[in-house]
Amino acid sequence: MNAARQNRFNTFAAHGALILYTLIALFPVFIIVINSFKDRRSIFREPLALPNAESFSMIGYETVLKQGDFFLYFQNSMIVTVGSLFFILLFGAMAAFALAEYRFKGNTLMGLYLALGIMIPIRIGTVAILEMMVQTGLVNTLWALILVYTAQGSPLAVFILSEFMRQVSDDLKNAGRIDGLSEYRIFFRLVLPLVRPAMATVAVFNMIPIWNDLWFPLILAPAEEVKTLTLGSQVFIGQFVTDWNAVLSALSLAILPVLALYVIFSRQLIRGITSGAVK
């Protein structure tokens, strides 16, 4: 077999495997979405069938939307996720820059200390966090969640971003210093744009766990006006009866914003890898 044909075969096999994986990964999502458009009976009788004229029903969505607070939950989840990502990226990148760029006593020690957070799950400290939030009066505010998620996401962000920042050309930063740019401008205008792909990666990794988290909203912000979407959807799951139409509709709706955020970041992922600064 010659090289060219073998290559094509390899490409084909790789694509085949990826498509298969995509199908498997999307299958549950697909089932949720089609069933959210069916009436209760059809969901259980034929869970795999597409909705048809007979089984089509919007009852789930109607229930969800009538549950007046649903948009509020949506908004809360959005604020928490976007806010947390913003602070994770901002503080993570700044810490990473300091670790990568400046020589100071305890640099390595500081890096190790920050990396420790990757290995120790933040939930271990839940009780202490709750006590702290009670004392600072942050219980039942979105800030409580944003702060906790920022702490949760920062270690990995620092770790990944400092690795990337080490690769940004020293010459470029030095050129900025000679031209009189402040360290802040060097950081924001020269370095950050060049590590944008890494920032997008960090954002994508952090986004889903924050959006889906049930633990901290339940403990730190269970009040009606600060409920997140995941917590809010729990009202449809009862101990004895579960409103499956509503649950499936709520889940389908919950996918949309994450999808939008993901599209934004993944475009950055691809776009970031271009620049003609060095060589």
Partner: peptide
């Protein structure tokens, strides 16, 4: 004295132009 105030200018091997 910081680099910008030393009255020097530097040309780097890797050009180091501002990409944006």
């Amino acid at each position: 004295t910081p680099p910008a105030k030393r009255g020097i200018a530097m040309v780097f091997q890797s050009y180091a132009l501002y990409p944006h």
